[in-house]
Design a protein around this nucleic acid. Structure first.
Lengths: 224, 224
DNA sequence: AAAGTTGTTGACCAAACGGTCGATAATGAC
DNA sequence: GTCATTATCGACCGTTTGGTCAACAACTTT
């Protein structure tokens, strides 16, 4: 079957056979996907540290040995998931277009976070734990720091058009921290004991206030 | 020795002998204190779930069995620590006096958090984990929900003078969540990769903006 | 000082966990 | 169809962990 695809090549031109995926490769990919999905589930249910490899494989309905064929340990699959979640979040941040003012930009940033976390609460809980692990003395740190830095850069890029050159990188980074902190912080408190609709009606007016004060802050900073 | 103290009683009046503490009782109290201090240390270093009972007793320089004479399990000692930390925070919140405007009040609330967490980073990391555990499917939940609710009530009490009766409890709770969320969120991001002085200079201007927007929000809410 | 009470200890056990490996099943090459 | 390759499986092993308990030490009582 695979031969058929490469058979179509003519002369010297060798197509990289993108569709020449074996059934085996498909199965492997599917297995890995199942493991990642199961891990995300149990991580957000029990917590990463409280989760055992058996928890993951049983949730994925796979053998234990299969896990170790795809990941070296729990830290690696967590890094994978964090990377995946942040990549997802960054993608949505980069889709933000047609904003002209800083207020609009900030509002969009918060809106993206808001909708992402509301739809992907499991990812939120995962990133929350990831952020904690970075503070704790863990080995995972190195592998997870990079995705979070990419995330900050994405926010900074969205804000940079409205920031004067005088504002140094450190200040922008702090600012991005504040934005991310507000969103993460609010969600961490809101997600316990609030329904989705409550969160929506609860955060909306506060968001507007927050956006206004942040833009006022930025404008002020630019002047000095 | 103990008899000497109760000997002082005259006629029917029986003093509750507060100073009649045995050496034994003192030792017991000291041991329990050592366990709590050690647990706070290792919890904030390795994370609660990654910490073993041996970690705690070794850090406290005590035998393993001693732990189980004071606490039934890890969940109980964690509840104790969370309760202690929040009680500490609430005390400092209640010391806030001589504020006349809502802006002052909000500024004080955030200032108390700020100073408390800067001086007690271990407690901050503990509460951060506690907040996570409330979201996860754990048994500890019941014992830890109450301290957090007391914490919210303390914030609400400070704000209530400036809130019209029209604003229902749910809204005030949401508002308290936002305040706590902002502080927790900012710290969680700031504490990684920032020195104490950086945090101070970084949060100050943002804090002012945040306070302004929150008070504006409250004033607006009161009108409607 | 002797006996009784209570806190402390760390060796010990059973359960749980991380990680391995030979057996098995699915797939690809010929 | 046969053989080679490779993913999957789950029983198995060594280690770690939570929790117990008999012995010991500190202290109190009489």
């Amino acid at each position: 079957m695979v031969m058929d695809v490469s058979q179509e090549n003519r002369d010297g031109i060798v197509e990289t056979p993108k569709k020449a995926i074996n059934r085996t490769e498909k199965r492997v990919a599917k297995t890995k996907k199942k493991l990642l999905a199961a891990a995300l589930e149990v991580f957000s249910e029990y917590g990463v540290d409280a989760t055992t490899i058996d928890d993951i494989t049983q949730r994925a309905d796979l053998g234990k040995g299969t896990f170790y064929r795809h990941f070296s340990d729990k830290a690696e699959i967590m890094s994978c998931l964090v990377d995946q979640a942040i990549e997802n979040l960054i993608e949505k941040l980069q889709k933000v277009e047609s904003v002209t003012t800083i207020e609009e930009s900030l509002d969009c940033i918060i809106d993206v976070h808001y909708r992402f976390f509301l739809e992907h609460q499991e990812e939120f809980i995962l990133l929350f734990q990831g952020r904690l692990f970075l503070k704790l003395d863990r080995q995972i740190t190195e592998q997870m720091e990079e995705p979070f830095n990419r995330y900050f850069e994405a926010i900074e890029n969205l804000l940079s058009p409205y920031v004067s050159e005088k504002m140094d990188l450190l200040r922008i980074r702090r600012f991005a921290c504040a934005v991310a902190g507000f969103v993460f912080g609010f969600f961490s408190f809101a997600m316990i004991g609030m329904e989705s609709e409550e969160i929506e009606t609860g955060i909306k007016p506060l968001r507007q206030s927050f956006v206004k004060s942040l833009s006022a802050f930025l404008v002020q900073q630019n002047k000095t």
